[in-house]
Design a protein around this nucleic acid. Structure first.
Lengths: 250, 250
DNA sequence: GATGCCCGTTGATCCAGATCAAGTGGGGCA
DNA sequence: TGCCCCACTTGATCTGGATCAACGGGCATC
């Protein structure tokens, strides 16, 4: 599979859901993110119908789920792994508008074209729905639309926080806020810990925070020197949460 | 009325809608933004009911419509004027996440607390709804919720564009993008022109673009010197749209 | 186990935009 | 008519973070 091409039925590692018991494929019933994702609004009976529409998909690191500007043919519910969502400028400058974790829904806005590009950072598992089928499905399910809207409202709120961060915070504050943010989000999906995995590269972090890779590296080194964090392989351990809170608040 | 206090029934210049014909109060029937605002999803018959729930409100420049963190008691549909929406840091740094114009809906996310502060920039007219009444009203109107969701999706998309701008664009690109953006939005509400009114202060523009007031001023002066724009009282005239497009794209 | 590559770190220098510091001019008010 | 205030502009200087450059270490490939 060409890793930089968008998702395509012919290439994806995917199979139909609701298959026989011998099949190792997961189903909604034992989905780890069912309660916290948009699906959490559904009645048990409704899951069956949704399951008919869903296809589980796996993406290798760097695989593209969809591309900014393309017709939004699919919607995804991430169940495992980390996805980067970004916008690019013609000259290559890039802004990562967010990292999607398990439980996050991609294509929330239900718009006819994708506004961002989505790429797997780690190995990613997701439920895929065709947009058309999903739209039909929600048509007589206002409680699901309501849930979708709640999620969109939350996204919007996060986006506004990120604007404040990008427009008005120093490099050190940006890094501190990023780490605490990730910690909170990991906690929500059941992996609360003072050790924060950072599966994304320094370049990804830089492109998320409006910095350069060198500044990210230097700032992490600085926080490490004053024992606020400890840099570990593929992550950091938060040693002094209060200090990070201070940096984030003020 | 204390201009810096949030909206309060006892102080607002407001009266009940759907009043007698002798009353100069506007009604949904002749609302200029009806078609382009969220209300555009409603059937004529549904307007009457909505009108019962709505209260028209006027705000003087600098008046606060609502404050970040407060319980979201009211939702507003702006019908006239400009509103700034911002987040603040404890030390006074401010990020204006957007300017709301006629047709924009404030409180779209339907969350229980306001995520931003809203202040009138100019004299502002708006329809006010209590959040509780509005939630009840939309409960059996999925087409309205759908419309609300479309608006939220659009907001989210704008927010992501703004993140790219804040994180990765130069001062000159920021100003160019801001002006073209405003032009497009003015055009949507029926005041298309190469002369862009800028009712907000330079400080507001700076706080929206992640710059200082001096940089905004200098950049406008520079664009003015190379005949890309002409600075006029309370606005600018776009002399060279292509040049601005160039700056915005690349 | 040598080779090369990618990723991250660190150091030196640069510069876009911030900060500090005067002006200037229009509009409200006595 | 004059005064003050405030928004804005302009100039001088400073600096946080960018840019340029070098290096090291893990790990995949042969």
């Amino acid at each position: 599979m060409t890793l930089t091409e968008p998702w395509n039925g012919a290439r994806a590692d995917e199979r139909k859901r609701a298959c026989s018991p011998s099949c190792e494929e997961s189903s909604c019933a034992d989905c780890k993110v069912r309660k916290i994702s948009v699906c959490g609004a559904l009645e048990p009976s409704e899951f069956e119908e949704l399951e008919q529409l869903s296809h589980s998909a796996t993406f290798a690191p760097k695989a593209m789920l969809f591309e900014q500007g393309a017709v939004a043919g699919n919607l995804f519910n991430v169940t495992e792994g980390v996805v980067r969502l970004y916008k690019s400028l013609p000259d290559g400058r890039r802004q990562i508008v967010g990292f999607a974790l398990a439980g996050d829904f991609l294509g929330l806005a239900l718009m006819d074209r994708y506004g961002v590009t989505a790429e797997a950072v780690t190995q990613v598992k997701a439920c895929r729905f065709t947009r058309a089928a999903f739209l039909t499905y929600i048509d007589d399910k206002p409680h699901l639309l309501r849930r979708l809207h709640e999620f969109a409202g939350h996204e919007l709120s996060l986006a506004q926080d990120q604007m404040l961060l990008l427009g008005r915070r120093s490099a050190e504050e940006k890094i501190a806020a990023f780490l605490l943010n990730l910690q909170t989000r990991y906690a929500r999906i059941g992996s609360a810990s003072v050790t924060i995995p950072l599966p994304m590269s320094r370049q990804d972090i830089a492109d998320h925070l409006g910095l350069t890779i060198e500044t990210v590296s230097r700032t992490l080194t600085k926080l490490s020197r004053d024992k606020t964090i400890l840099i570990v392989p593929d992550g950091v351990r938060l040693l002094n949460g209060e200090r990070l809170d201070e940096l984030t608040a003020a």
